[in-house]
């Protein structure tokens, strides 16, 4: 196989060195930019989380150690009082909401995405049209889809209540986004509607790499299509599926915009990102919010390393060459 290492193959040591020096100067500006917008702000966020900085006075914070996370005060009466986000019920509610949202939405997106991908992988008239149609939810900005669905889910004039009443699925109009019981379903529905296309396209790319003759052979042998799917297709697309799932999972864990616009101020759907921003910007508990966003970062970092370590997922794409 050909390698990309032109310098080593074509020229002498000096050429390779020259290329490496050039490579350094090509990469340096990008790294500098990433340092400014990613690494530095992240470090500052973590630092803020260890202080009592206020939004109005960013440089007036004092070091208070881990008090934003957890602190213990023993009163004179001998009572122990724990404080900090780790004993904050609102935070744990947000953690639970986020985790539940992430798992349920990714689960359904995977199943539905798989179905849509299998449909698109079949040869039929109008396939291009279907592919164009499923790109529409993906192209619509999240905020716009949140508003569109908020209107469709409206309790008084929403079309979905009307459809379900006519079909006899519900017997009275439901305030989908406002009611505590249904707000999470509303968020999940919109997210699944919006991101299933992305999942389907990623899975479709995996499906198209499966050689067609395998199916022909299975067909000749008279093997049941369901069995073909579970025994042949699924194992072959597993790597593509794994990557798609991890991407969606990371995206779902940091969800902010949909929840913020579709179900504002609902405790039933408030996610980690929403509660962190609320504390940081709206409630003037800047450092406390910074601690919560640091925790979210830690959770996601842990999740990524676990996934890579356990699944041995080749994210860099180097192995496929």
């Amino acid at each position: 196989m050909a390698t990309n290492d032109v310098g080593g193959a074509g020229g002498g040591l000096s050429l390779s060195q020259q290329r490496q020096r050039a490579a350094f100067w090509f990469i340096a500006p990008m790294l500098a930019a990433l340092f400014c917008v990613a690494a530095w702000p992240l470090m500052r966020t973590i630092w803020f989380s260890l202080t009592n900085t206020a939004l109005s006075d960013l440089y007036g914070g004092e070091w208070i150690g881990f008090d934003n996370y957890l602190s213990l005060r023993v009163l004179d009466s001998g009572r122990w009082i724990w404080r900090g986000t780790l004993v904050d019920p609102a935070w744990w509610n947000a953690v639970w909401n986020t985790v539940r949202f992430a798992f349920v939405s990714v689960f359904f997106e995977t199943i539905l995405g798989l179905i849509v991908a299998l449909v698109l992988n079949a040869e039929f008239k109008g396939r291009g049209l279907v592919r164009a149609a499923i790109l529409i939810p993906w192209a619509i900005p999240t905020i716009v889809s949140a508003k569109m669905w908020a209107w469709m889910l409206n309790d008084q004039f929403g079309i979905l209540n009307d459809i379900m009443l006519r079909l006899g699925l519900i017997d009275q109009k439901i305030a989908w986004t406002a009611s505590v019981d249904t707000a999470m379903y509303a968020v999940l529905t919109v997210d699944i509607w919006k991101t299933t296309p992305f999942m389907a396209l990623l899975i479709l790319a995996g499906l198209q790499m499966v050689p067609r003759d395998i199916y022909e052979a299975a067909k000749l042998d008279g093997i049941n299509p369901v069995k073909v799917f579970f025994k042949i297709t699924l194992p072959l697309i597993r790597p593509a599926l794994a990557v798609a799932i991890i991407f969606r999972m990371l995206d779902a864990l940091r969800i902010f915009d949909l929840v913020y616009v579709l179900t504002p101020n609902s405790a039933a759907t408030k996610t980690m990102s929403v509660i962190s921003r609320e504390n940081m910007i709206d409630f003037d508990k800047f450092a406390y919010g910074a601690a919560q966003s640091t925790l979210l970062f830690a959770i996601i970092a842990l999740f990524v390393s676990l996934y890579i370590w356990l699944g041995k997922v080749d994210l860099s794409g180097e192995g496929q060459k």
Binding site: L34, C36, V37, A38, W40, P41, L42, M43, R44, T45, F48, S49, L58, F247, L250, L253, R254, F256, M272, S273, S276, R277, M280, I281, F286, G289, A290, S293, T294, L296, F297, I300, V304, L315, S316
Partner: peptide, 20 residues
């Protein structure tokens, strides 16, 4: 590392970016 940055939860840099 570059891939990891693209998976960053944006809220994690919000406080630092706000200061910047």
């Amino acid at each position: 590392t570059i891939l990891a940055v693209s998976m960053f939860p944006q809220i994690a840099v919000l406080a630092g970016l706000f200061e910047l």
